[in-house]
Amino acid sequence: MGLLSKKDANLILDPLADNNPITIQVLGICSALAITAELKASVVMALSVLFVLGVGNVVISLMRNIIPSKIRIIVQLIVVATLVIVVDQVLKAFAYELSKTLAVFVGLIITNCIIMGRFEAFALGNGPWKSFLDGIGNALGYGVILIIVGFFRELLGSGTLFGIPVLGDPIAKTGLYATGYENNGFMIIPPAALIVVGIIIWVQRSRNKALIEEA
């Protein structure tokens, strides 16, 4: 890490674990849960948020001294909305099938609390380079959880990863299915995402006792 000072590196690394936007800051849950039934959708969503948050943080940080604080929410919304339109149009042009699966959830990046949360908490008070790192770090922290949830839901729910069967063929009973293993259809339905995230929080907090909440 010759390029980054230790402080800068922490901006990226902290949100990955101990200050994770989803499990610790409780931001941006909506989209994290709704689209994680497949790994591919999770990855695309994570990349979209990475783009929007990275660029958005820089833009807001550059404008931080000229935005009147009374109308900052609207300014932020317009910046995010513009970036999201770019993402949406790119997805529609190059990954049409996927943009159908993600449907309205691409649009909902606009109201993803991570974005507004980082704008408010970081970009409005820091320079562009730091804000960029902070944006990337938080988007990665978000992406990590998304990918973990997507991985388990797709693997246990349909026995595939990125749509490729990895546990054998459930109909021909090959691979793991020969031993009597069955796909867990429960993992596909939406509420399973909540339970998977709940378990991730459980694991993380039992490994790091400092994160446990007061009752």
Partner: peptide
Amino acid sequence: NVPAPLRGLGITFIITGLMGIGFQ
């Protein structure tokens, strides 16, 4: 008496999941 690491956020997620299954 919720297990300590689940207190607060964790248990809320799991309860919401269970409610969601109910609503299904």
